[in-house]
């Protein structure tokens, strides 16, 4: 019997390999690794989400139910859930006021840090002036100063300025503590922008502020978005600074909710929905900005 050899139609220099053949053991290990990783992530998710879900469920139960049984019992009897707590909360002026205070504190603290921080970062990255590098080192050094160390001197300072206890005092403190890191982060990011790009803008007729606004800001947007989220979350969730610098009229929600804690029981009907509401806002902010965490914004600009 004659067989005709069919030549392989493969370009020279290429060897044909089938799908990678792996031993049973390595496949089992691979699978197992995949399962383990997935399992770990799920576990972590459950671990983090349980208190949040618990809080959400508790906020939907009546005071009596909450003191009688744990929140998980509601899962088998969802008919007893009610929005009453939220209704009560929205009629509670103290809580509403403090939610509003939180906004009044957080928005300027975030905006000021982002605006001042990015301007300073641009100057430190791209404008030459004597002592620039030393100034930057000094600012970076300020990052390591712990909040606790500054509280008492700042309280005295604000006292003598007559703003102690006001929202302005809380904002001032947050801005002062947010700026060093903001400048550090943004300056390094701005410095990574190719010099040619700024020089091109300069040749195109831009002055520093125009270059900042039209070239550096759009390109630095991912860093600015990250910074905005972090600063926003940090200020929104802050309790320590508020406890020290705000009077109860100017207190943010964290402060007010804490006052609802008692020695032996707590007002779950206020804390639950209050805490849940105060969590929603940062979530919205996070999702609004997270789509800007894109890589490769510089694609195609140079080379």
């Amino acid at each position: 019997m004659s067989t005709t050899e069919v030549p392989d139609l493969v370009p020279a220099g290429m060897t044909v390999t089938g799908p990678p053949r792996r031993s049973l053991v390595s496949r089992v290990v691979g699978r197992l690794g995949g399962f383990l990783a997935t399992g770990a992530i799920v576990l972590l998710g459950v671990f983090w989400l349980t208190p949040v879900v618990g809080l959400a469920v508790a906020s939907l139960r009546s005071t009596a139910d909450n003191s009688a049984t744990g929140w998980w019992t509601a899962l088998t009897d969802p008919g007893r859930l009610t929005l009453d707590n939220y209704g009560a909360l929205l009629r509670n002026e103290g809580v509403l006021n403090s939610l509003w205070n939180t906004v009044l504190i957080t928005v300027p603290s975030t905006v000021l840090v982002v605006v001042l921080g990015s301007l300073a970062a641009y100057a430190l990255a791209w404008i030459e002036f004597p002592g620039r590098d030393w100034l930057f080192v000094l600012i970076v050094a300020l990052i390591v100063v712990p909040v606790q160390v500054a509280i008492i001197p700042d309280a005295k300072l604000f006292g003598s300025l007559g703003i102690y206890g006001s929202i302005a005092a809380v904002v001032a403190f947050h801005v002062a503590f947010g700026l060093p890191f903001a400048i550090f982060l943004l300056r390094n990011f701005f410095l990574a922008i190719p010099r040619d790009l700024l020089e091109a803008a300069r040749m195109d007729g831009g002055r520093d502020f125009t270059i900042f606004r039209r070239v550096v800001l759009p390109i630095g947007w991912p860093a600015i978005a990250s910074l905005t989220i972090f600063q926003f979350l940090w200020v929104w969730n802050d309790l320590l600074v508020a406890l020290v610098f705000a009077t109860s009229d100017n207190a943010p929600i964290t402060y007010t909710l804490r006052e609802q804690m008692r020695a032996f029981s707590s007002n779950v009907d206020v804390i639950g929905p209050g805490a849940f509401l105060s969590m929603l806002v940062p979530l919205v902010v996070f999702f609004a900005f997270q789509r800007y965490f894109v890589q490769g914004v510089l694609a195609g600009s140079v080379k």
């Binding site: 040619d196 803008a201 007729g205 125009t210 039209r214 510089l298 140079v302 080379k303």
Partner: peptide, 25 residues
């Protein structure tokens, strides 16, 4: 006007705006 070795195009602008940038400024 200068042409850079790296081209130095503005990555966030399209071709039209890249070319017109100097005129807008």
């Amino acid at each position: 006007a200068m042409v850079f070795q790296s081209y130095a195009l503005y990555p966030h602008l399209d071709v039209f705006d890249n070319i017109g940038f100097g005129l807008r400024l």
